[in-house]
């Protein structure tokens, strides 16, 4: 891909209290890159959901592990990679959630992956050894629109 791109990295402990820090990280760098507010909000929510899932499911609540988040802003897309060393996400076992059904079952979880898929243009999970990576891609249009 042509044009300039910049990458920023944040490492956080695997605890939900750091999610606000992740959102600030996305906000600051996306604003610097003059990303439109609409995209910024969508990317920020998707990254929050992905990190929340890593903390809850990959690390199963262990708070002394780490997550690495890299944000790369290209002229036409934003790419975020979230890396962890926990339990890999089982894409085959994933079922799209139904809010009515979940409410009847009094379930509070299971919406995050659906939100990520609805907001991002590409979502890719990969695992190698004990390293997992979630790659999120959002196509962006000119900020002068």
């Amino acid at each position: 891909m042509g044009g300039m791109s910049t990458t920023h990295t944040l490492v956080i402990p695997s605890a939900t209290r750091y999610l606000a820090k992740v959102r600030r990280f996305i906000t600051v760098h996306a604003r610097q890159a003059k990303l439109r507010e609409k995209y910024l909000k969508e990317v920020r929510l998707a990254v929050d959901e992905a990190c929340s899932n890593v903390i809850e499911h990959a690390y199963q609540g262990k708070t002394d592990e780490k997550l690495q988040i890299t944000l790369t802003i290209h002229p036409t897309q934003v790419i975020i990679c979230i890396r962890d060393r926990g339990r890999p996400f089982d894409e085959e076992a994933y079922r799209k959630p139904n809010v009515v059904e979940l409410s009847r079952k009094r379930r509070s979880g299971g919406l995050g992956v659906d939100i990520i898929r609805r907001l991002m243009d590409e979502v890719e999970y990969s695992s190698e050894g004990n390293r997992n990576e979630i790659k999120l891609v959002k196509q962006i249009h000119s900020s002068s629109e």
Binding site: L19, S103, G109
Partner: peptide, 15 residues
């Protein structure tokens, strides 16, 4: 701000 964890609270109690 709200993420799915917030939405989940409504799902958990509405029934």
């Amino acid at each position: 701000y709200i993420s799915s964890a917030g939405l989940g609270v409504f799902m958990a109690f509405i029934e």
